[in-house]
Design a protein around this nucleic acid. Structure first.
Lengths: 156, 156
DNA sequence: AGTGGAGAGTTTGATTTTCAAACCTGGCGC
DNA sequence: GCGCCAGGTTTGAAAATCAAACTCTCCACT
């Protein structure tokens, strides 16, 4: 699980180290939908039970999920998203939108999400400062830590 | 790589099946930054060379990257993002922002991105229809395909 | 008092992936 | 001809994943 050499320090890599393992983001999808019981997760995600158990432990340890008792005697549990977990939902929605367009190509979409404004949610990533939609050609990286000044041995 | 039983049909799962393997999104990060050469990718990501080669093949096959010759004799290659690939960049930015806040907690951020408006980019996911920021409590799922009506055996 | 079933996992043993390091294959540069 | 670079492939060992079976606790029924 440790990276080989000295990859770049990067919040994207950090985030993926926490939630980038197989099934983790699907767990979050289900939990955000309110389906936080073990057997629901197994069925809806299609993950092996042992792997799922490992992921749940990790997500709870990372503070993304909490494990709640919803019934003493018989003891039953339910996983819920913490604030940090809920704040990943926009990432999921953006990923869903990308998948809708580029993989399913707009046909036979299996699920839609409705926004409180009454319309179907189509997520758009915008710049907090100016409100414009974020597009690749409008971005410039500004390295701030070593590991970012070297882009590679030969590159400028 | 195939899912066990019959998980939900879902664009999030579809998207993750393509770009959710370890290193794939980091490859996209580097390629979006313009560091698309094999050895740069190895160094900046810290991935084993064979795994990286496998990921690159997959991403090219999926139409997310293209492999370009930037020098005949000696033959040298460079990977670039297609339009579909570039459209994943907002997802990466949103993930970066989450990592900045929840993992690095705002301290010593290794990289910033500047938006064309002149400010540092802080991505916000908004609703295309109303422009409001997307928050969990404003969303309602609307199942459209079988596999979404069953939330689990016991749930409503 | 025994049978069965749900929920929430754990165990087991076989299969896949990952990994690190070594190797290979042109084509220069000298 | 010698070494080096870029862009991979090969190899063998270590780790992760998988499906199925199993455990354990409680409750419901008969």
């Amino acid at each position: 699980m440790a990276a080989t050499k000295d990859p770049r320090p990067c919040s994207i890599a950090d985030a993926l180290a926490l939630v980038g393992e197989k099934y983790s983001l699907l767990v979050l999808r289900e939990v955000c939908l309110g389906n936080g019981r073990f057997d629901q997760l197994v069925r809806n995600i299609g993950a092996p039970r042992d792997i799922l158990a490992a992921r749940l432990r990790r997500l709870v340890d990372a503070g993304i999920l909490t494990k709640r008792v919803y019934s003493e005697r018989p003891q039953r549990f339910e996983y819920r998203a913490t604030q940090a977990g809920l704040e990943l939902e926009p990432v999921l929605m953006t990923l869903k939108e990308w998948g809708d367009r580029h993989i399913r190509k707009g046909a036979d979409l299996p699920m839609a999400v409705e926004h409180i404004c009454g319309n179907e949610l189509v997520p758009v990533v915008t710049c907090r400062a100016c409100g414009e939609e974020v597009r690749h050609e409008d971005l410039t990286a500004r390295p701030q830590a070593p590991g970012w000044t070297r882009t590679g041995p030969t590159a400028a």
